[in-house]
Design a protein around this nucleic acid. Sequence first.
RNA 1: GUGCUCGUAGUUCAACGGUAGAGCGCAGCCUUGUGGUGGCUGAUGUUGCGGGUUCGAAUCCCGUCGGGCACCCCA
Length: 457
Amino acid sequence: MGKLNKLSGFPELLPSGRVIEQYILDAARQVFELHGYLSLETRAVEPIDHMQRSGEIDKEIYVLRRLHASAEEADPGLGLHFDLTVPFARYVLEHAAHLDFPLRRYQIQKVWRGERPQEGRFREFTQADIDVVGKGPLAFHHEIEMAVVMATLLASLPIPPAVIQVNNRKLAEGFYRGVGATDTQSVLRAIDKLDKIGADRVRRLLETETGLTPEAAAKCIKLASIRSLDASFVEQVRALGVTNELLDQGLSELAAVVTGANAERRGSVVADLRIARGLDYYTGTVYETQLVGFESIGSISSGGRYDNLASNDKQSYPGVGISLGVSRLVSILIGKNLVSVSRAVPSAVLVAVADEASRGASELVARQLRARGIPCEVAPSADKFGKQIQFADRRGIPYVWFPATTDPEGAAGDTVKDIRSGEQVEADVTRWQPPPDDLKPRVFSNVDTSTALRESL
RNA sequence: GUGCUCGUAGUUCAACGGUAGAGCGCAGCCUUGUGGUGGCUGAUGUUGCGGGUUCGAAUCCCGUCGGGCACCCCA
């Protein structure tokens, strides 16, 4: 057998890592459903030309073909989807007649991108998306809702505090027009590079490539430096002395998102006018999310409002959505050792086996525990009890159950041992219950998130 | 795709031209049916792969494959 290499960018978790991932997936599902989002899944494959239409041409798409496709067979032009928004837009158009609008759905699936992997960036990864899509109009208040739902989910996880940074495309575009820019996309793209290349080089880009006057470029950079936890950013923008109708609309929308979301989840959202986002189909609020203390890894959740998620001749479907980068978040938690798990296996109890002749008695104990919802397994072999306890210890199984011995000298009933404390007590298999904390693997934070949160504000 | 860097035991790493080693982990015993601590003993490698230089290569050179990071782009 040849040497098996792990594939770069296609992560596979160890059992304890998978416990963390599943914890997040369960939490996402629970929070999304609590907010009324229904679950959808789309196929993994989309026509390549359809995926390219809404993004740039150079998307890194994995192409799909049959191994036995003959040379003269037409290439169906299929690829693995690189996000969940484009397939969802296609799904909405295709099934519109059977859907009720506004439609709120969540979608948790793998996506694939051919980019070179690095820290927190993979070629195969899981996203958890929520979107609300309207038929014709879509009320603005859903743009507040996105931030609230995601903030609720993030707050429910044992992770460092997360801050959702929001901006508004109308605000930015109106401002750029107000200072005389014609190609607002290129201003946005330059501003997006502020973190990477710095203000001086962005200023030069704006003056040379976008053709802004030095004053206009300076104002655009000034705009990007504005940041506030409440609506006070509005005055700061006004102080720059730019007037434009679209700008006004953007200002009031962004103010509504920041005050509205923070009213529900204090400190969850900050207006940050530097947030640009490369994708050109956003038309209103845009979101990015940083984990406090781990900003360098990039956004763990982002999205925005798009007036034209999908459209056909008769109808257009505006939407707003936000996506949690599950794989990225999990990789940070594991890589930076931010969380621990109580055990990597589901079993709360290992039922010991005295000898192979009495395995049936042990199986019966296990059946009775399972009937009451207690995950358990029976020891694989009738080793010395020390070995069986060690078997449980290595897996983090907290309890070992010793069935009543048939040995007349033993004369004892069933006992259960908490192998962490060593305490062993008599127990009735029809009544014994582990503490709720021990029933399922637990995921807990290794860092004191409360102080970290205070420092960030 | 381009650039930089790194591939040694299950794992983390050492040895930097002269017989491949340590910690952790693993197995056994001390401990004859209740683990963890401690003590003793033991097993494990085509040094990623291929070629070259050399009396001699894990070490130097070339190629190749793979990993990591940066650019690009994004969760």
